[in-house]
């Protein structure tokens, strides 16, 4: 036995919460996206841990899919960041408040 499942879960949740903290606290759009990446990775870790716990390969397969989707998502979001930077000249999340009121 390498480690109890609960440890993996706690480790993974700490990672997840750090990612969440990054999303909540940072105003730079890039940093927000990085926070999202961290959260996705934490989930990946949980999945691999579960796959090791149950001795099924499905968890690892799921991580594959996760990574594929993450790359797709990141490419589009970064393209949008580029567009927003061109539009407003800033990538501060507080600058985009035209939906206010």
């Amino acid at each position: 036995m390498i480690v109890p499942m609960s440890h993996i879960l706690i480790f993974s949740s700490i990672l997840f919460l750090m990612g969440l903290a990054c999303v909540l606290a940072r105003r730079n759009l890039i940093m927000i996206l990085i926070g999202v990446e961290i959260m996705l990775n934490a989930v990946g870790l949980t999945l691999v841990g579960a796959s090791a716990l149950w001795h099924q390969v499905d968890g690892q397969i799921f991580v594959i899919f996760l990574m594929a989707m993450t790359s797709a998502e990141v490419s589009i979001s970064l393209a949008m960041v580029v567009y927003l930077q061109r539009r407003k000249g800033s990538i501060n999340a507080n600058a985009f408040d035209e939906m206010r009121g």
Partner: peptide, 17 residues
Amino acid sequence: LRRMTTGRLSTYVAAFA
């Protein structure tokens, strides 16, 4: 209530959290 819709991403994400 309108003050809650700031139009800012950070407000809404914080609401999620």
